[in-house]
Structures are given as C-alpha cells and as structure tokens.
Design a protein around this nucleic acid. Sequence first.
RNA 1: GGCGCAGUAGCCAAGGGGCUAAGGCGGGAGUCUGCAAAACUCCUAUUCGGCGGUUCGAGUCCGCCCUGCGCCUCCA
Length: 528
Amino acid sequence: MSQPIRVYNTLTRTKERFEPPADHHVRIYACGVTPYAEAHIGHARPALIWSVIRKYLEARGYRVTLVQNFTDVDDKIIDRARAEGEEPLRLAARFSQQYLDAMRRLGIEDADRYPRVSEHIPDIVEMIETLVEKGFAYVVDGDVFYDVTRFPEYGKLSGQRLDELMAGTRFEADERKRNPMDFALWKAAKPGEPAWDSPWGPGRPGWHIECSAMSLKYLGNHIDFHGGGLDLVFPHHENEIAQSEAYTGRPPFVRYWVHNGLIKMGAEKMSKSLGNVVSVEALLERHPAELIRFYLLNTHYRSPLEFSDGAFEDARRGWRRLATAVAELRRFMAEHGLPRSGAEEQAPADDEPAADPGAALRSPIDPDALAPQLDEAGRLFAEAVAETPARFDAAMADDFNTALAIAALFDLARAVNGYRQHLARRGRGETEGEAAVRRGAGPVSRRGGGEWRVVPPPEEAAGRAAAAGAADERLVAALIELVLEVRQEARAAKNWAVADRIRARLQELGVVIEDTPEGTRWKKAEDA
RNA sequence: GGCGCAGUAGCCAAGGGGCUAAGGCGGGAGUCUGCAAAACUCCUAUUCGGCGGUUCGAGUCCGCCCUGCGCCUCCA
C-alpha cells in the first residue's frame, strides 16, 4: 500500500504528513503570472511541477482541482502597455495567451481554471469592503490600505517580526499609511490607467488581494495547497494570509504552503526585471519539450536550479539513454507481436479517473510467481520491472521527489537494455514467463513516457503531429533507406571505405546510423 | 541591518539520526562489433564547507564561523 504523502510546508519549515481532505478532493491554487512579457522557464517550472503533482495525486485516487491565476491588472502591465502604445488589458491578454501556448507546447496540461483579475473586480471589492468593515483596512483618498498591526500573526509565513520589518524598511513609505508595512488593497485611479468603480471611487486592486479573492471564490477556505515561487513568500503570500484569514475569520486559509526554488542564470536569479531570462519559446526552438521537462524534473522542486547551456547538454546525454531504452522497448513489443506500448503510454482519459486508484503505483507482475520460468537475467529484469512502480510511488510520496523518481526510471532503462541484450545473445526466443515480464514493462515505462512526457512519444504519434510535412518526411525516409541499401551491399563486399564514407556523410547531414545484429538503423540527430 | 535557503565525487544531483552515501554526466578498464555508434559489465566520495557540541551512533540534530544565493521594492 502506498505510504502517506509527506510535503514540505513553508509555514512550519518541516516536512509534514499530508492529511487528505475528507471528501478526497484536493484543492490547489498555484500562483500564476503577471502577463507583461514572454513566458520564461522560471514560469514553466511551477507549472510543470503542479501538473506532475496533480497527476500523482490523481493516481493516488484523489480528485484534484487546480486553479492558476493571471494577474492581468498590474503596474508592470500598465507601464509596458504605455511604452508599447497598447491597451493594458489587451497586452495582458496577448501575453496570457502566449503563456498558455508556451506551456501547452511543453506538454503541460491546462489547469482547471485560469481566473483573471479583470474579471473578478466585484469579488475583490466585496472582500475589501468586508476588511474595511472589520477594521483590518482603512481608506485614504480613494486608496485602501491593510493595517498589518491588526493581524497579530503577520509575518508567520516568512518568519519575520513586524517590528523588524518596520525598522528595516528600505523604501520611502507612503506618508498616508498608518504603518510603513501596510499594503494597498485598492489603488485610486491615476489618469490613463484602467479603472473600475468602487465604494472608494474609481481605481484598481492592489497586488495580493486578487489571489485571496479568486482562491476563496473557486476553491473555498482551507485549501490544501497554495504554491508559487520562493520569491513570493514575502510579501505576496504573507499578505494573502493576512487578508484572507482576517476576511474569513476562520484560519487556516491554506493548509500546506508549497514553494518551488528559483531558476538562476549563472549565479543570479533569472527574472524579467534583470533581463536575463530564457524564454520558453527560445528553448523550444533548440530542444524537444521532453528534454526540457526532463531537465526541470531531474532536480527536486525546492532546490535552486542553475540554468546553463552546458548543464543542458549534460542532461541531454542522460536523457537520450532513457529515450533510447523506451524506444527499444517499443520496438521490442512490436517485433514480438505484442501490443504497441504506445497505446498503453497514453495518459488515461479524463473521464475515467480512479477506476482503480493506485493501479499505476503497483507492480504489474509478480516476480516470485514468474521466477521458476526465468533465468538469472530474466529474474533481474523481472525484479526491476516489479520494483519500479513502488520506487516511483515512494519518491513522489516524499515531498514529490521527481529527481528520485527519475533515478528509478534510469535503473529500469538499464534493466530493459540489459535484458534485451541478454536475449539477443542467448539466441533463442523468450519463454512465456519472460514475455509476461516484458509486457509488464510497457505500462511501467508509461510513467516516464506518457504521463511525465520526459521521453519522446512513439514514432507514429510524433508522425501524426508532423502530418503537415508528412509527404516530405516519407520521401526523406525512402531516400535514406535507399542509401542504406547501397551501403549494405558495400559492407557485404567488405568495402569498408565506401560504407564508412556513407556513414560519415549522412552524419554530416544529421542522420545517425547504427549497425546492429538485426540490421542498420537510422535516426535524426536531433531525436537522438 | 532583519528574515530565509543552500554548500554532498571533476561536473550536475538525491538523501535530513544507525543497513554497503541514489541517479545522471564525464573519466578509466572490459564485453559486443569489420570499424564506429548504441547498449551492457566493473571501477571512479572511508566521506558530505570549517570548527566545536549532543548522542552508543551525525552529511543528517544544536551552536559558532566561512562561502554563495534569495527576500525585505516588481518577480514563478
């Protein structure tokens, strides 16, 4: 049976046991983006992590609702829009769409909802009104500020003491504030800015309040997870707690605060304001989505991740081995007349969740029962296939340790390749027991192939995706086959010079050749 | 100045009181192979930034120090 899920809670600075909600419905709010520029990999990390956590929770039999906001009303957007001569909301809509497109191209499934500030002004106004009525907020000249001294627990998330914060204020505080740390819930409109009517006059929401309002609206109080980058802990999430718990009067607003580490460029943080970003689009031009996912998931979500092209190339080599193993497994299935594992690798359809909760987390075979039918290599293979789901489960249950889970995939890949080689050398076909083990490996590899998409999809699926260029693709393939045929004749005649020249020239053209006992294979370099 | 995170092999990176310190890259030696590639096998940290302490036992807990980073102003 699966072990309890443990999750690191920023609020308590410890790994805590996750107590599932009574209705088995897990509610997640992941802080999204302020869409004023192209999405970069720093945005992709939390989006990817939450989509993977979500899949894991669903595999454990929970129903999951994931909400991710767009803060489409914001100073940065207004500034940028002014510079570009574009309507702020239009610009925000444009970059929101760009973000969604980029995430989809990375193979990240949509969240259940993407609420926008601009569409929730009434909810926000209502919340601010209540905070004013309850005495947590005060109005000055059309602005509304939150009085941090009214919330005794202010600072509990970030471990700050209010007096220290006040003392350490580095900026010139607005003199109309009661305390320097008070923050704006509502900002009176300035000329040329988007504005909405409110009881305090035309204006717009401050930062922070939108997440409280939209989280409470769509997920209710006491949600299970609230996530975002480590840079949001203070003041954003601190302020969210203050607003939300003051508003509801029934803490906790959030049960587990989950923050991902930041992506750094060299030694520095990657951020739009520093201008050292790598956009998702730019990365996708150079690398397959699966490699990018692998790169991101191969480090635990809470660790800082230093981005560099060199690190990416190192990751690529390891990733290639995984991809090769899965490709070999698929080929193996096909050659032995077994169902292509491609079908099995598709993620389960959305409308059939939890038909058998946890099935994917259990071993598909019983190695002990099969043992009498297996030789030594077969037993090793069977054990690897049998162990992988449990290792995967254990890794994910321990604070969603994707890096540890991927290590299990590497071990499985080695077992698959080793077994395949063993079979080829032994010379006779597999026994019924061995075939059973290999059939079991299909669904297991699905975790990496289909569900996590850290290895490329089956060729036929990729082929469909590239249907537009299909005719050319077929022609190219036919030409390569032709060349290889000629080269094979040269090899048969031991004309190594010609054979090697063909190989070298194809290599220059980006076509990699491998001579195997079963014949010559080829693939494009970028897929290898 | 305050708060917080991190420092594990040549590089990346898991592990957070006790079985042999995961996994990847790189490197070395083999197997297979016309050669190459791929793949497989074995080897590559008596030790976890430093110094003290707690403990029968510490990368793992505590204290101090060093180094790097983040937040305290917009940021995933």
